[in-house]
Design a binder for these strands. Structure first.
Length: 360
DNA sequence: AACGCGGGGTC
DNA sequence: GACCCAGCGTT
C-alpha cells in the first residue's frame, strides 16, 4: 500500500537506526506526566482529548482534577454534562468535553465499558479523529498506527525535508503514510510518543535545539542549515471584531441574570451574562432590547468596564453595564436569577469569568 | 477543502 | 501583534 511519493521521500533514510535512536532517547528523557503512570486506555483517551491544541503544562492540573472527579468511563458516562463542562472550564474548545462524554457513553453501552482497540470502532467515536485514534491504539494498546499531530509534522518535515504546507488537510496524509513505513513494530508506543516528545522539547517551532537532538544525524534540514525554514505553513486569516454590551442585572435580592448559551456553536451550553450585539441593536435601545428578550424592565447604570476577548476566529469587544430590575418576570427560557454562590457552580467561559470578577 | 471552535504561552 | 499548541466536526 506504499505510494510512490512515500517511497521516494524515504530513499536513503536509515529507518532502523532512526527508530533505535529515537526510542532510546525517549526512554531516557521522557517527562514524567500524570497520564504516563500506566497505560489505562481511559486515561490515555482523556489526556489525548485535553491535549488537542493545548499545551502539556496547561493540561496537567485539569487532567488530575478530571480523573479525581470522573475516574472511570462509567463515572463520566453517568455525570451531568454541566458538571463535565465545569471541570473543563477555562480549558477551551468545550465541544471536546461534550463529545468525550457522548463517546464514553457509547463505550459503556456498546462495548461493555472497554475502550475499543481497533481503528474502526475507535475512530467512529465522537471526537476521536485520525490523530487521537492512532495515539490511543499505539500508547494504550501498543498497536502500530500513525498519530500525526503538529509536533510530528514539524519534526518529520525537518528530518525528511518535506516542504508541503502542513496547514493543508492533504499534507497530514502524506505524513501518515510515511509513519506507516517507518514506525517501530516492536515499540510503536515509544516511537509515536518519541516523535511528539521530540517536537515538544527539542525540535521546537522557533529555535530548535539541534545540538541536543538524538536524531540530528538523520535530519536533512539540519545538514542543509534549513531547520528554521521548516515546516511550511500558510497563515490563517485574522479575526473579526464583534462588539457587545454585557449587562449585570440584579434583582431586589441581589441575584444576577445569567443564561445558558445555545447547544451549538461558540461556547455551546456554557453560561453567560446577557449580551446585546451592537452590530444588530443601537446602544440606546438596550432597555427595549432587554425587555423584549427577558421580559423585565431594567434601570441601567453607567459603564463599569470595557474589555477585549480574543478567540481563534473572532474578537469580542465587551462593554460591561450594570442594571437593576424594576418590574416584570423573567421569561427567557434559558435564563435564571442566581446568587453569587450559585453563579460559581455553573460553567462560564473565561471572557465572562473576567466580568464576574467585578461582582465577587 | 475550508471553516468554526478557546485559551494561553512565547517571541 | 503573530504564531502555535499531542485536532475534530461540519459544511
Amino acid at each position: 500500500m506504499k505510494n510512490e511519493q512515500t517511497v521516494k521521500i524515504l530513499e536513503g533514510f536509515d529507518k532502523q537506526q532512526f527508530q533505535q535512536d529515537l526510542i532510546h532517547w525517549f526512554k531516557q528523557e521522557q517527562r514524567e506526566l500524570p497520564w504516563r503512570q500506566d497505560q489505562d486506555p481511559y486515561k490515555v483517551w482523556v489526556s489525548e482529548i485535553m491535549l488537542q491544541q493545548t499545551r502539556v503544562d496547561t493540561v496537567i492540573p485539569y487532567f488530575n482534577h478530571f480523573m479525581e472527579k470522573f475516574p472511570t468511563p462509567n463515572a463520566l458516562a453517568e455525570a451531568d454534562e454541566q458538571d463535565v463542562l465545569k471541570a473543563w472550564e477555562g480549558l477551551g474548545y468545550y465541544s471536546r468535553a461534550r463529545n468525550l462524554q457522548t463517546a464514553v457513553r457509547e463505550v459503556v453501552h456498546s462495548y461493555d465499558s472497554k475502550v475499543p482497540d481497533n481503528e474502526k470502532e475507535l475512530g467512529a467515536l465522537k471526537g476521536v479523529g485520525p490523530y487521537t485514534r492512532g495515539a490511543i491504539l499505539s500508547i494504550a494498546y501498543n498497536i502500530p498506527s500513525p498519530a500525526v499531530d503538529g509536533n510530528v509534522m514539524r519534526v518529520l518535515s525537518r528530518i525528511l525535508m518535506i516542504e508541503d504546507d502542513i496547514a493543508k488537510p492533504a499534507t497530514r496524509k502524506i505524513f501518515e503514510s510515511i509513519i506507516r513505513e517507518t514506525i517501530s513494530e516492536e515499540n510503536p508506543s515509544a516511537f509515536n510518543q518519541g516523535l511528539m516528545e521530540l517536537g515538544a522539547i527539542v525540535c521546537t517551532p522557533k529555535n530548535p535545539s539541534c545540538m541536543l537532538c538524538p536524531v540530528q544525524e538523520h535530519c536533512r534540514a539540519f545538514h542543509e542549515g534549513k531547520e528554521k525554514e521548516l515546516p511550511i505553513k500558510s497563515s490563517q486569516k485574522k479575526q473579526k471584531r464583534v462588539p457587545y454590551i454585557v449587562v449585570l442585572v440584579q434583582d431586589g435580592m441581589g441575584r444576577y441574570v445569567v443564561q445558558k448559551r445555545s447547544d451549538e456553536g461558540l461556547l455551546a451550553n456554557m453560561w453567560q451574562f446577557p449580551m446585546m450585539p451592537l452590530h444588530e441593536y443601537d446602544r440606546n435601545k438596550i432597555q427595549q432590547w432587554f425587555h423584549h428578550e427577558y421580559g423585565i424592565d431594567v434601570a441601567f447604570g453607567t459603564t463599569m468596564d470595557t474589555l477585549k476577548h480574543t478567540f481563534s476566529h473572532v474578537i469580542w469587544d465587551l462593554e460591561v453595564v450594570t442594571g437593576v430590575a424594576q418590574n416584570g418576570t423573567l421569561e427567557h427560557e434559558d435564563a435564571r436569577f442566581v446568587t453569587k454562590e450559585e453563579l460559581q457552580q455553573l460553567p462560564f467561559p473565561v471572557s465572562h469569568q473576567k466580568i464576574m470578577k467585578h461582582i465577587l
